[in-house]
Amino acid sequence: MGVIPNIMVNALVLASMYILASLGFAFIFNMLGSVNLAHGAFYMLAAYITYYLCAKAGLNNWVAMLLAAIVLAAIGIVMERFVFRPFQTEFDRVVMVSVALMTMLQQLAVQVSGSQTISIPAYGNGVLDLGFMTLTNEKLITFLVGLILLIITLYIVYRTKLGMQMEAISQDRLGAALQGIQVNKVAMLVCGMGFALAAVAGAMMGAYQQVSSNMGDNINVRILMLVMLAGAGSMNGILITGFLMALLDSVCPIIWDSYTASAIACSAVVVLLLIRPKGFFGHEM
């Protein structure tokens, strides 16, 4: 009983986290043209920071998450200033730097924590009985955190001057600068924001699933796929493809083992991209 509602709940929880992790990547990709392949690694870093602040420093996991988000926002600002900005027109260099960072962070994670599986204490305990199904509070909280941050982000993008300036920069950087938009300042803010959102996703997923040195790779694949599937410049598209991706990741493991499931989910995305090479919701006139 309740297989379908369960799948939907799992998909919603995963989707909220996938989308949260992807937003920063998408902003940086759309606005600055930089492909930050280390985005997943920073998500992992945030999970580790949160874990160690809880396990070793004894902090409350919410406080630890907040601190991790602040640290990652600072890293995002540094990345903008020293990687994305100087290498703005050099696609290959950003890829090289970000792959190097990704590898370093992963190795660091293995060195520091070994290969044992660890996880952040759950953000919620107990079960909620909805009558037709039961729902763990952890899932509910994870989803709500994702949802609230998503609503705030969408509000900023669609309803504020900053959002309109971001959009302008994505569409024509020089045109934006000539309107008096402080392109570098906006880029810095957005990188900080995007990294912090990824940090929250990492810290939540480190509790919902586990903290591991390859969690960054897993999310990286998701991020790349859902941003590509959504199409360049599409925010709404990310919401839909995020849910689609999460749905695949919720359904496939029921039918197949986790490796096959992952391969099949990825294949499905490849097929979708063959049908719509520009993605589903990219700019259309």
């Binding site: 001057k161 309109m164 300036q165 959009e167 302008a168 569409q171 024509d172 020089l174 045109g175 934006a176 000539l178 309107q179 008096g180 938009i181 410049g233 700019h283 006139m285």
Partner: peptide, 17 residues
């Protein structure tokens, strides 16, 4: 160097950003 995917109105408002 207009913002091609934004409306005429938003382009104008961005001029006054």
């Amino acid at each position: 160097h207009l913002f091609p995917y934004l409306s005429v109105q938003k382009n104008l408002l961005l001029g006054a950003t």
